[in-house]
């Protein structure tokens, strides 16, 4: 599904990704872990097409197509979804309107018919239950005045509605209490299917108790320095990042 080869990227002329190789097959869950500044959030943002990052080398193939050539909205229309570490507040646009617009734009891009507001509400109803959200949230402006936990739930709600092929969760667990973490994880797990893949970017092993990965990768100084199964996360939790990155070797 996703094939990253030798990916390099800079922000403001500073190289953050220094050659990433990663292959994600359909149905797999990959965890990308690493200390602060290792480049793991950058990887997530580059895959979604954030304009602040410049790709300077390597390639990314998504379902056989060149992902890096696509505008962010095209990536989303093809099935890539990034759950933001810091979801953006958009005062003045209601959650329901935003979601319906996104849902319909994606359908339109795929040559499917748009759904009307009433039918869309039916779709929303089930999805809201999945993330234990109240429908009052639909009428509020996107993320505006939401608590940290509500914002993260809203990201998962969007993901549940848009049903991406590849979901990238960028530190979705940061700032969440254990209840919110459980809700978010349940939402992600409910969407798991053999034809969908997930990349979980996280600093801590905690989330991986709930979203069990098939593979764990450790990122340090812009490179993947170690890969393994789910037990690698537990080992990291016990031994700390220094164990793989060397004493403060990579953390910037």
């Amino acid at each position: 599904m996703l094939k990253i080869q030798g990916l390099r990227a800079t922000v403001s002329d500073k190289e953050i990704l220094k050659g990433i190789d990663l292959t994600v097959n359909a149905g797999e869950v990959h965890a990308v872990m690493g200390p602060n500044g290792s480049g793991k959030s950058t990887l997530a943002q580059v895959l979604a097409g954030h304009p602040a990052y410049t790709v300077t080398g390597g390639s990314v193939e998504f379902d056989g197509e060149d992902l890096l050539e696509m505008d962010p909205e095209v990536r989303a229309q093809k099935g890539v979804f990034l759950a933001f570490q810091y979801p953006v507040e958009i005062p003045g646009v209601s959650n329901a309107y935003f979601l319906r617009t996104a849902y319909n734009e994606i359908r339109k891009a795929r040559g499917e018919e748009e759904v009307d507001p009433m039918d869309f509400l039916d779709i929303m109803e089930q999805k809201l239950k999945m993330v234990e959200m109240n429908d009052v949230m639909l009428n509020r402006s996107v993320n505006t005045g939401f608590s940290g936990g509500e914002k993260k739930r809203n990201e998962i709600l969007q993901m549940a509605v848009l049903e991406p092929k590849l979901a990238i969760l960028d530190e979705t667990d940061s700032g969440l209490d254990i209840d919110a973490l459980r809700v978010v994880a349940n939402g992600v797990n409910a969407l798991r299917r053999p034809d969908r893949s997930t990349i979980v970017v996280t600093h801590y092993q905690r989330l991986l108790n709930y979203i069990v990965p098939d593979f764990v990768h450790v990122l340090a100084n812009g490179r993947i320095v170690k890969s393994g199964g789910k037990e690698l996360a537990l080992e990291l939790e016990a031994k700390g990042y220094d164990w793989v990155t060397g004493p403060q070797g990579a953390a910037a």
Binding site: E73, F81, L162
Partner: peptide, 10 residues
């Protein structure tokens, strides 16, 4: 970018 990342055209 946030909106575009949800599939909304520029």
């Amino acid at each position: 970018f946030y909106m575009k990342s949800r599939g909304v055209s520029a």
